[in-house]
Design a protein around this nucleic acid. Structure first.
Length: 428
RNA sequence: GGGUCGGUGCCCGAGUGGCCAAAGGGAACGGGCUGUAAACCCGUCGGCUUAUGCCUACGUUGGUUCAAAUCCAACUCGGCCCA
């Protein structure tokens, strides 16, 4: 891919919502490799799929020969971004932040090549240059170039000013820190482009202005659209299950399943945005999918590609394999090896052989698996509503588990609803 | 510092002494229909060996009362206005 087509490719993938100067940036990209950055704040010890989108854009630039910088925002994370927030954030303490940054770095490295050097990317933490900045210097060197009028005009600030919770000076200052980051990266690494979600638009612009005012040098911002729900409404940060890149928080199987359940209306968009398939391949997959949407060819491919990027091809294949067993034929006919494979992917539930021999209330077992039921009450409810299945067969209210339910003498497959599974493996 | 308004279940939000585990909406969950989809319909949605029962819960602590999310006091956190 040549530089001239990179922007077109991104646009075709639906990854360009706004650009400060599309023409100018295209010309700059045609001129040679550019250094660009994408920042994530370490608000948790794992990134989620929203960040994955950004990392993949970084990767696309890298694959096109440009030099990516991934910024873990130790400093900005300390302050809290007011964007998209209705109220003040809770601040994180140093130790938590430190651990979060460390965890996030590892995740970034899986997507972007951070080996440094000519083409290799760079990983930076803005605490490195923010921590020792003196207040007076900051006010003079950064603050002097920004008017409060502009800051107040930002959508995120306006919303917070209108809300009953207000906004603290700390969060108000966030955009200055981010602008300062861009300035420092421009000075130290010749970074000329910042990418981010359109919710970061205002914050990102600050850096462009600052660089122009301080150095009279150009800089660009490229923003992709925010992820939306299938019906076009905004995908709330707090609503809906967050899908994490960390395997402890979201298992590879669960991650795979998330993509598997993608709405038909979004699967094409996601294939373009969350995989590295070429647009021609995406179109081919979609064409096959259209022939028989029920086979979920596109979802299957999306799930595999995305899971492979985050957890590796082996994990992706294992998740795909387990999915086929669970959503395929009658589990009572599944070979022991298949059940063993399932056991590595779905949550385990502990049951003792003695309990089965004596016969144990199914409700008690369900309540032991948080994925199936959060309490006995919930377990009873699910059972009463006909939503519980033992080895693929709907369980009656009052059902007990006994040795007779064992498959291959050691497994019992439990399911709630259509897709929540847990496996009891008694061993041999 | 003064005044004033407010802190309710996952989220938003009603409730101003008993009829309150607390309206309504959203999210979520189960069933039906399906394609592990969409739309739609029905149901559930604090916990407990399912109970006209007990426990926990309406910022915190204490008080008034037969009875408090509701009244009083102190504290605490937040908004707004004034200085």
């Amino acid at each position: 891919m040549t530089d001239a087509t990179l922007l077109d490719d991104l646009e075709a993938r639906g990854l360009v919502q706004d650009c400060t100067d599309r023409e100018g940036l295209a010309a700059r990209l045609a001129d040679g490799p550019i250094t660009l950055y994408y920042g994530c704040d370490p608000t948790a010890d794992s990134l989620h799929i929203g960040n994955l989108l950004g990392l993949l854009v970084l990767r696309r630039f890298q694959d096109a020969g440009h030099r990516p910088i991934a910024l873990a925002g130790g400093a900005t994370g300390m302050v809290g971004d007011p964007s998209g927030r209705s109220e003040e954030r809770n601040l994180l303490d140093d130790a938590t932040l430190e651990a979060n940054v460390l965890a996030i770095k590892a995740q970034i490295a899986r997507i972007v090549d951070l080996s440094g050097g000519e083409s290799g990317g760079l990983l930076v933490d803005n605490r490195d240059w923010t921590g020792d900045v003196r207040l007076l210097d900051f006010l003079r060197d950064v603050g002097k170039h920004v008017t409060v009028n502009t800051m107040l005009a930002r959508e995120s600030v306006k919303n917070r000013l209108a809300s009953e919770h207000g906004i603290s000076f700390t969060e108000f200052s966030y955009m200055l820190l981010q602008a300062h980051d861009f300035l420092r990266l421009e000075e130290d690494h010749g970074c000329q482009l910042q990418i981010g979600g359109s919710d970061q638009w205002g914050n990102m612009l600050g850096g462009v202005d600052l660089i122009r005012r301080v150095h009279q040098r150009p800089a660009w911002v490229l923003a992709w659209p925010l992820l939306t729900a299938p019906d076009g409404t905004k995908l709330g940060k707090t609503t809906g299950a967050r899908i994490w890149l960390d395997a402890q928080r979201t298992s590879p199987y669960a991650f795979f399943q998330h993509w598997m359940q993608t709405d038909d209306r979004q699967v094409g968009q996601f294939l373009a945005q969350f995989t590295l398939l070429s647009l021609a391949e995406v179109a081919a997959v979609l064409a096959t999918h259209q022939e028989a949407p029920g086979r979920r060819v596109a979802q299957r491919r999306l799930a595999f590609e995305a899971t492979a990027l985050v957890h590796g091809p082996e994990e992706a294949a294992a998740a795909a394999h387990a999915s086929e067993i669970l959503f395929g034929a009658d589990p009572t006919g599944a070979p022991a090896a298949a059940l063993r494979a399932v056991g590595r992917e779905v949550p385990a539930v502990a049951v003792a052989r003695a309990e089965l021999e004596a016969g144990i209330d199914l409700v008690d077992v369900l309540a032991r698996a948080p994925e199936l039921a959060a309490s006995k009450g919930e377990a009873r409810r699910a059972l009463a509503q006909g939503g519980v299945y033992v080895n693929g067969e709907r369980a009656e209210d009052g059902r007990s588990l006994t040795s007779g339910d064992l498959l291959h003498g050691r497994y019992v497959l439990l399911r709630k609803g259509k897709r929540a599974y847990a496996l009891a493996d008694l061993g041999v």
